[in-house]
Design a protein around this nucleic acid. Sequence first.
DNA 1: TTGTATGCGTTATCAT
DNA 2: ATGATAACGCATACAA
Lengths: 334, 334
Amino acid sequence: MGSINIKELALKLNLSKSTVSRAFRGHSDINLETKERILKVAKELNYQPNHHASNLRAQKSKNIAIIVPQIANNFFSQAIDGIETVAREKGYHLLIYLTADNFESEVAYVNDLYNGRADGIIMSVSGEANDHSYMNKLQEKHIPLVFFDRVYDDIHTAKVTTNDYGSSFEATMHLVEAGCKNIAFLVTNKQLSIGKMRMQGYLDALKHAGLPFKDELIIDCSNDDHRNLTVLTNAFQTMTIDGIFASVERLAFATYYVCYDLGISIPNQVKVISFSSLEIAPLLNPSLTTITQPAYEMGLQAATLLFKMLEHADDQVNDQVVLSSRIISRNSTL
Amino acid sequence: MGSINIKELALKLNLSKSTVSRAFRGHSDINLETKERILKVAKELNYQPNHHASNLRAQKSKNIAIIVPQIANNFFSQAIDGIETVAREKGYHLLIYLTADNFESEVAYVNDLYNGRADGIIMSVSGEANDHSYMNKLQEKHIPLVFFDRVYDDIHTAKVTTNDYGSSFEATMHLVEAGCKNIAFLVTNKQLSIGKMRMQGYLDALKHAGLPFKDELIIDCSNDDHRNLTVLTNAFQTMTIDGIFASVERLAFATYYVCYDLGISIPNQVKVISFSSLEIAPLLNPSLTTITQPAYEMGLQAATLLFKMLEHADDQVNDQVVLSSRIISRNSTL
DNA sequence: TTGTATGCGTTATCAT
DNA sequence: ATGATAACGCATACAA
């Protein structure tokens, strides 16, 4: 290391380590002149307090960890943007972990965060159908945790979500009102609570509208775009479908590709609505009707909750923030 | 902290700290049985070596920092995805910093990284028209640095870029061949080297095609989408423009919005080509002709270079990787 | 106002 | 194969 440390700096200044240290923390009393002298020389020598040493003493890292399924994704990247805004203001650093929707990765990351690398965690989960008890260890270590969007219902902690059930109900009704009779629901993760909520909204809306529920119209997709094309192509070829409710943005895109390919006209033959954070939904062909989640705002809130927990370590913060999504009607459901 | 440390664990096990420590590092000789016993109890007690202490000893963090202008951006989020792939494989963690194209933020972040928080930096720069000498301090501290996409030419370090000049030349020729005579070039950061390279490709292609260069056809945009709409609306209303070459994705979107608004038909009245990493370019109305950079691959390469530097600390790695962008012709330039 | 000494939790060196 | 100890760099309690 070509680094200079506090001892060497003190030596150069003919001062003690403590005095130098004091110059850097707003802390104790210290002569203004010496302080300035210290800071000046420190700057010249490009000295900065070693952060591992400081943090070892302070028992904190000023890092917060974000665990999400993906980053190349409009929703998550916007949410991270929101988190960053708050974190920067607080002087915290951001660690990013991507699970690729793999539960084992999630567990590995969380387990890896017991060691002080992060002071808190903000997370959108990947493995609903599993045992989540490993998360409780975080609480033992007093590492605050905030879920956003995709949450584990059985873990008691702060959460930021949107009204998935309600907006799914509305979205389905939107298709019904547009004249759809055979509405397919596209999911990637039926077992994820968010998938369940959205599906329930869909089901209840069908019932409310007096439309029959057909099991085969719940179409199980995946994160593999290629496979989704096959699945959807097959669906369109074997079933009557005049409406698509995509519970996730990528499935709307897949629908578009398949419809282009099969020569199915949107919205004339099939109407499409989708959860989506795509900012250019108006530019699609046809423009896409979306249920838009306030992604950035969700990140903002999640981070705010986390800092609330961080700052009141004693408090068992268990806030549940529910924001509203907005249905924006465009040509795909005309 | 409700944490258990190595001392306490050793006490519980009736062993010394050293023995316990050995169990965790593949290290020295240690009796297999005791090792297993230690790991077992450690797991039960949820012990993990404190990472600040370890890192203080080891003088490294296993963190790498990524500094980029934005994250809610197709190019950067895909690039980060690539970086993550490599970093995870190497067991490194990712710190993310967003500059919002603000040079002061960039400087602040870089300065904040001298203290050992990160072992290396991967960066896409924000402030070409400034003094970059502050970056040299990194080299003093032996913190390896890799630039990608947006680089500082005057800083001597590893870089991953694409053939911006060549593909801009080609892109412009693509418009020329499609019949455009009045091609506007849209930039956000003329002074950024990347902006300059792309502009030069544009200029040389015009010359090559024997088309006159008009200064007003180089349209200076910003990161403020709202303002861009005004700027572009004004441009279309006051000039003859039959081709748009957007040096950055967001400017293509702005062009679409403005053309929709003004009732200008793409591609009949104006043809549009753009640098873009948008995966759904085929779904736009009309589908967008793109110069597609291998964003994910660039992240991959940047990370690979960084680890090369990290692993051969003595080597002055100065690799310059240049990847190819690909022009994908679609309906916007038909 | 400044200096001295101790400990934060680990790991490596040396001894046993 | 295991234990004692010093050192990583810093920040505080206490002494001066």
